[in-house]
Amino acid sequence: MSSQAMQIPILDHIVILVSHKDLLGISSHIEGHLTLAPGGNHADGLTTNKLILLSDGVYLEFIAFFDDVDPERRRNHRWGKETEGTVIDWAFTLPSESDFAAVQQRFQNADTSASYTDPIPGGRTKPDGTVLEWAVCTPKDRQGNAVAPGSMPFWCLDRTPRARRVSYEAESHLTQHPNGVKGLLSVSIRDPDEGAFNLKGAYDAIFGGEWSYDVPSGSTAGKRAFSLSTGEAAIKLVFHGSKTGRFELLPGLVVDIESLA
């Protein structure tokens, strides 16, 4: 494998910001649609989460800031100024942290002024006391300033086994959802600032070829496609499952379920 080669990015998770009150009551909202998995508190002490595990290994992260967090610390957080009740970000992963070097190598020659930070350590402790560690790489512009969350994915690279962080196989009952959802069929991004640093060039560097992603389970079902367009900023998700239709992920946030046929 050459230094320019790269494994297809693996879709890791989708980040949905909610208020702490809504996070505490999320189970009552999704009852009858989705099965909730426990999350935990993040190592920085600012945020806590709960998860929805999908059988393809991708997960949805409902994340909230604690109400008593210092306002200045929240503002300085990557997601501190984002709108609650919306999909705000998403993450890719790779089999090994060392695989990320190929991404950074491609960005050196990419037709874009965006790039990624070097891996930054992170982690959280699960309710059962299990410590999880990972490294995060976030997008930045030519001046080193953070790129708006959601316009480009960040990378979550595990330093402890991913199976500890996302127990979708060991606890497969948590991936069984009343509405039949099994995985994510596609992700599409609308971004109003596409011209700021040539997002198309950035995504060419991210994917290194066709704009498609793998999923942690290794399943090849579905198109697993990514698309980019300009317009009012938004992240759109389309799920696949044993049933088709629409459901309300959060009040006012409606998503589609399609079949794989």
Score class of each variant (00 low, 15 high):
Leu185His: 15
Gly122Cys: 03
Glu82Val: 03
Thr160Glu: 08
Asn109Tyr: 11
Phe100Asn: 01
Glu171Val: 03
Thr130Glu: 01
Thr125Tyr: 02
Met152Leu: 15
Ser151Arg: 11
Trp90Phe: 15
Ala101Cys: 06
Ser167Asn: 14
Thr160Val: 09
Glu171Gln: 15
Leu94Thr: 10
Pro119Thr: 13
Ser172Gln: 01
Ser98Pro: 01
Asp141Leu: 12
Arg142Val: 12
Arg159Ser: 10
Val166Trp: 08
Arg162Asn: 09
Gln143Asp: 07
Pro139Tyr: 05
Ala135Val: 15
Val87Lys: 09
His173Arg: 10
Arg106Ser: 11
Thr138Ser: 07
Thr175Trp: 00
Lys81Arg: 13
Leu185Asp: 12
Leu185Glu: 14
Tyr168Phe: 15
Arg142Ile: 13
Ile120Lys: 11
Arg164His: 14
Thr125Leu: 01
Ile120Asp: 03
Asn109Lys: 14
Phe100Thr: 01
Pro119Lys: 15
Arg106Phe: 02
Lys81Gln: 15
Gly122Pro: 00
Ser151Gly: 12
Gln108Ala: 08
Asp158Gln: 13
Asp89Leu: 06
Cys156Ser: 14
Val147Arg: 13
Pro95Trp: 05
Glu82Asp: 06
Thr160Ile: 10
Gly129Asn: 02
Ser98Gln: 12
Glu171Asp: 12
Lys182Thr: 14
Pro178Cys: 05
Ser186Asn: 10
Gly85Asp: 01
Ala146Val: 08
Ser167His: 07
Lys140Ala: 08
